Each structure stands twice: as structure tokens, then as C-alpha cells.
Simulated assay, not measured.
Amino acid sequence: MGTKIRTPKTVAGRVVLAAISTLFALLFLYPFAWLLAASFKPRGEVFDNRLIPQTFVPENYAEVWDQLPLLSWMFNSVAIALLAATAVSISSSIVAFGFAYFSFPGRKLLFGLVLATMMLPGAVTMIPVYLIWKETGLLGTWVPLWGANLFGSAFYIFLQRQFFLGLPRELFEAARIDGASYWGLFWRIAMPLSVPSFVIVFLFEFQASWNNLQAALIYLNAGTVDEFTAPLGIAYAMTKYSPTAGGQGDYQYVMVASLIVTLPMLILFAFGQRYFIEGVATQGRKG
């Protein structure tokens, strides 16, 4: 059974718990508050560490669209993240259902090999994967940023398998007696009952793809600026405005752009948090 977290019964204990929770919340919110304040500052005050700007410059939010192709970067990132999250969520769920439902010789060994792939550092496979995409002629396109997700992810397969194992076996046996196919078992029974876990996988991968600077740097850096993703675009803007690269130090536009590109993730988590909490609670009840 899962461990039950008990709240303090005394007033002093509750006050201490509230104080600690508030302190950690402020620590996590401080970088966002700093970024918000810096986005309203003029060029010379961006790094003065004031949480309340001495000089408010709301014009930064209007000028940034002329300074940087922000809409193109956000569109590219959203499209790639949706493709990556959808592909890995569906493919991982299919593989996970196979491991959870079917019994076949070598299943445990094969599942162990799948999990063992998580032990490989990304640096080990970076060059071989690059050479594979080079041979396909797809360098400079979006495909390398999401195409590998069509084959699933070991972590997501493990996560989805745990949810599928918690489903009553009798549901699938009854459906088989009624003539349901194996695909029907997955699509009509397993998937509707595992929506929380599916949403969790989707959110995790969307965030991972949205923040993936390394892959964009490798596969898109040779293209035009308009083809960049949001993380690569922000890195480009930092270099563009750097005085060492001939810029004028207009980092206020970088702060505005950084704040704007966080909005899709905030919106996504706002809509998906119910499923996230439900999924965690379900796993806790299984424990």
C-alpha cells in the first residue's frame, strides 16, 4: 500500500508546514518573477536584479515582434512538439499493452532489454543517430526532431505498462469472448481506461520536445533563422544582441521572447493538470 501523508494536527505544526511550503514556492517562482520584471525594463536596467522595474517599458512587448521572428519559432516548436508527443504516446502505449497483456517466451528478457536502453547516455548514440538521419537525406527538416518517437520510448513504455497491469484482466477476457480483436482490446478498452497515463506521457514528451535545444542545434542550425525552434531562436537572440558579437546588448527582447515562449507550456499544464493528478493518485492506490 502507498504511504499516507498526514498533515500536522497542532496549530504550530500547520504554521511551520505552511511556512516551509511558502518558502519553497517563492524559491521556484523567483526566476519567473525576475524574468517578468526584466521583460519590462530598458536595455540598461535588465540585469539590475530589481523585481519591480525602476523604469517600465511595456513597448518591449510590441517591439520584439519586429526584432525577432517569434511567431515562426513558436509555430515550429508547437508543431514539432505535437508531432513528437503524439507519436511517442501512441507507439509507447501499443508496445506497453503488448508487454502487459500478452504472455510469450522471453517477454521478461525483452522487457529488460527495453529498460536497459535507458542506461545508454545520449552522447553515446548521438553520432550514430546523426549518421542515420544523414543517410536518409532528412537533415535540415523537422523529421529528425520527432521521427524516432514513432518507435516508442523505454521510460514511457514502462510507465504505460504499469497502468495497463492495473486494469482488471476480466475486462479483456470478456471482450475476447464477445469477439473483440486484439486491436479492439487496446483501442476500445485499454486506452479509454488509461487516459490519465496517456496525458501524462503526452505532457512529459511535449515539454521535453519544447525544451530540446540540442536536437534543434544539430539538425536545424544550418537552416534559415525562421526555421528555428523557440529554444534555438532564444539562443540565436542571445548571440545576436551580445556586444561581443557586434550587438547592442538589447537583452530586454530576449527576456520578452523567453517569457512568451513559456506560455504554451503553462496553458498545456493548466488543461492537463487534472489528468496528471488523477494519474498520480491512481498509481498511489495501486501501490
Rank of each mutant, 00 (worst) to 15 (best):
R107G: 10
E45W: 08
P243L: 05
L26P: 14
F104I: 08
V280W: 11
R50I: 06
L139Y: 12
L131K: 14
R188S: 08
D250K: 10
W187Q: 15
G137P: 14
N49T: 09
L193K: 13
F271M: 07
G246S: 02
G279E: 12
S153K: 11
L145S: 00
Y130G: 00
L70R: 08
W210I: 00
S209G: 00
K134Q: 15
W73F: 09
L232G: 06
M119P: 04
F198V: 05
L113E: 08
A81T: 02
S258C: 04
W65M: 06
K4F: 09
K9M: 10
Q162C: 01
Q67S: 15
R14G: 15
A85S: 11
Y30S: 13
S91Y: 01
Y182L: 11
I260P: 05
W210T: 04
L35S: 15
L171Q: 06
V195Y: 12
I127H: 00
G2A: 13
L23H: 14
G249E: 13
A18H: 13
A84S: 13
L26M: 11
N60P: 03
P231I: 05
M265H: 01
N149H: 12
A215G: 10
A116I: 14
N60Y: 02
L167K: 12
R169Y: 00
G137I: 08
P105E: 13
Q283H: 07
L51H: 09
G44L: 12
K108D: 13
Y182M: 07
F40D: 05
V11H: 10
I177C: 05
L139T: 13
T229H: 02
T10Y: 07
A281E: 14
P105S: 11
E278Q: 09
V254M: 10
I200W: 01
L165C: 03
G106A: 06
A123G: 01
R176A: 08
S197P: 04
A245E: 10
L27G: 09
L150H: 09
F32G: 05
L167S: 07
T7K: 15
A81S: 09
F28E: 15
A208G: 05
V261Y: 06
K4W: 13
Q273A: 02
Y61S: 02
I260F: 07
L70F: 14
A81N: 00
W146A: 03
G140C: 06
S72W: 07
G284T: 05
L110F: 11
D178G: 07
M119G: 09
L131A: 09
A33N: 05
